[in-house]
Amino acid sequence: MFFGEKLQSVRELNGLSRKELADKLNLSEQAIWQYENQYTVPKFEVANELKKVFNVKAQFFYTEPFATNISKVESIAYRAEDRESRKKAKMETTFIDFTSYFLDKFESKLNLPTSPLPLLRDESIQLYNMSMETNDRLLQLEKIAENARKRLDVQSNSELLYKLELSGIYILEKNMGTSIDAYSTWASQEKSFIILGNKKKSAVRRNFDLAHELGHLLLHYKIDMDSLTKDEHKIIEKEANDFASFFLLPKEQFLKDFSTISKKSNPESYLDLKMKYMVSIGALEYRAYKMGLLTFEENRYFYATLNRKDYKKNEPLDEDIAIIRPGKVRSLLDLIFKNHLFSLNDILNDYYIDRSFLESLFGIENKFLSKYSEESNREYFNNSNIVSLFAKEN
Rank of each mutant, 00 (worst) to 15 (best):
G292L: 05
N55C: 15
F296R: 11
K263R: 14
L16I: 07
Q140T: 05
T68I: 15
E165G: 10
T68Y: 05
Y170M: 03
L112V: 10
L27I: 03
E237R: 09
I261T: 07
E159G: 11
D231P: 04
D350S: 11
I364C: 11
P116A: 03
F362R: 03
S188A: 05
D104F: 13
A182V: 06
E298G: 01
E190I: 08
V56H: 00
V56C: 08
A203L: 12
K143E: 03
K264I: 00
Y380G: 07
N385G: 14
E237V: 14
A22H: 02
T134N: 15
S269R: 07
R137L: 13
R137P: 01
L389T: 10
Y183R: 02
E319L: 12
L293N: 04
I180F: 01
K199F: 00
F302V: 04
M275L: 14
E45I: 07
E393L: 15
A89L: 05
Y39W: 15
S373Y: 13
K367Y: 13
K87C: 12
V387P: 00
L248Q: 06
D320G: 04
F296G: 12
K43P: 00
E297K: 06
I96C: 07
N147P: 04
K199Q: 04
E45V: 08
N339D: 15
R83S: 08
